[in-house]
Amino acid sequence: MNAEHKAQPIGYLYLMPALIVFLLFWIVPLMMVAGFSLFHFEYGTHPTWVGLSQYVSLFQTNLFWQSVRITFEFAIAVVLGGTAISLLFATLLYSGLRAQGLFRSLFFLPYVMPVVATSTVWLWMYQPNLGLVDQLLGALGFSNKIGWVNTPNLALVSLIIYTVWLSFGFTTLLFMAGLTNISNELTEAAAVDGATAWQRFWRITWPLLSPTTFFVLVVNMINSFQAFTQIYALTRGGPINGTTTLTYYIYQTAFNYFHFGQASAIAVIFFLLILALTGIQFWISRRSVFYEA
């Protein structure tokens, strides 16, 4: 009787263009990459079946484990630093400042500029001696003029600082949107009862904000794991592979050394890692994120 419940096969026609693209460039490639990872396959040569041995040799390679460690160090530092900073700015701005919209837009500016352009600026600022960062440190009396992106331990720190700078305006925006959804009645009532600003934040705002915080953590984590452009622009994975994350490792293995099989094995592991992270995050969100009824 109701046409809404009758099947409408023409719908599949509507779905067709999108599905063709998804199948050809996302789903089939995902299967192909799993297949490639089982072959010894250098670009331009015939693939030969090697089973799981590429995974085995990967697990015995120091560079692989190092890149896993660097990926996590980078992501965790960016997520924790970025979230803390943006939460601080969001709460400050939200505490009834008249110019909050202006500040919010100004903090957001780095995020809307192309990563290629801003990382070029930072590359320049990070240069040894002539770079602005070294000049500033020199003016303050530090004589540490070794350069940032070309010193093993500092290179990763430089990337973390740049990435936090790039993204904290975006997460501030998300936090402010979350704060607007929390009614003022609760905090005002607590203030009447004599709760300090500190108590009001940790006992009321923070738990009510947890869905937003969780969302920010997820988005930040996934973005940080997939950072590439700034690494290519600032350090090219160096020095001595000190900033080679998994994404850069895939790129380097596939398109600098043309070991497509080996790179596919890393790509599969990277995919599983992202999948596991998403799973864990949703599991946590079901258990401990507080959603207002």
């Binding site: 999108a18 998804f22 050809l24 460039f25 996302w26 789903i27 089939v28 490639p29 995902l30 192909m32 990459v33 490639f36 794991f225 997939q226 590439f228 998994l246 994404t247 895939i250 790129y251 596939a254 497509f260 790179a263 596919s264 790509a267 599969v268 990277f270 995919f271 992202i274 999948l275 998403t278």
Partner: peptide
């Protein structure tokens, strides 16, 4: 379609390049 959102482009760029 939702699942494609979880596939990082870095994981499939090798087959994509060959295609």
């Amino acid at each position: 379609i939702l699942a494609t959102m979880m596939v990082p482009f870095y994981s499939i760029m090798i087959p994509d390049y060959l295609i």
